[in-house]
């Protein structure tokens, strides 16, 4: 075998090795997917699939104190009337409570809205667990339709003792681009 042939063979061998490296690195990108999930699991990040062990704790109703929950409602550039049926109630932390809101579409066309909750004080949000809420999905109301919608919630007994009043406020926004164009 001549020297030139030897070089050609050596070149081809190196070409093959480097192509294998490229293909392996392409596979490595996909191997990062399970690797990433494992890391997140170990680090306790991204725990969206963790089942609710908190719910079990909620059965212990804290009868020693009660929290005043006030309800508030707003609409943002949306011609709906929107109000809670009760302005407020007293709740023991851990007890399952239910309230209702009433909403009316005053427009002559079907409108889709999305309610966004907010809490005062803000740090109460993490202790306010909603089991059922009309804010979980978009609401589409026919022209003139009136709808009563429940909110079922539990206040976490871990709520700091210095919070005596929680204001739950909903704002309805129109979901743009969902109304059907005439014709």
């Amino acid at each position: 075998m001549s020297a030139a042939d030897a070089i050609v063979n050596a070149n081809r061998l190196l070409l093959r090795k480097l192509l294998v490296v490229s293909v392996l690195m392409f596979g490595f990108a996909f191997a990062l997917v399970p690797f990433y999930e494992k890391i997140c699991e170990v680090a306790g990040l991204r725990d969206i699939f963790r089942s609710d062990e908190v719910a079990a704790k909620n059965t212990q109703v804290d009868m020693s104190r009660s929290v005043l929950v006030e309800f508030d409602s707003n609409t943002q550039r949306l011609a709906w009337t929107f109000r809670p049926l009760a302005l407020g109630l007293a709740a023991h932390p851990g007890a399952v409570m239910q309230v209702e809101y009433e909403v009316r579409n005053t427009l002559d066309r079907p409108v889709t809205g999305q309610a966004v909750p907010s809490y005062g004080p803000q740090r109460a949000a993490q202790y306010f667990r909603k089991l059922e809420c009309f804010c979980f999905q978009q609401q589409t109301l026919a022209p003139g339709e009136v709808r009563r919608m429940p909110v079922v919630f539990v206040i976490d007994p871990d709520l700091p003792k210095d919070i005596g009043t929680i204001t739950l406020s909903y704002t309805f926004f129109e979901v743009a681009g969902t109304q059907k164009r005439p014709g």
Binding site: L18, V21, S22, V23, L24, M25, F26, G27, F28, A29, F30, L32, V33
Partner: peptide, 25 residues
Amino acid sequence: LVASMPVLAGAVTMTLTDRHFGTSF
């Protein structure tokens, strides 16, 4: 380049399959 370019190719391939072939990377 040999070690990193294929990883980019993998990332955009995942984007492509997410867009058109129903994967959820």
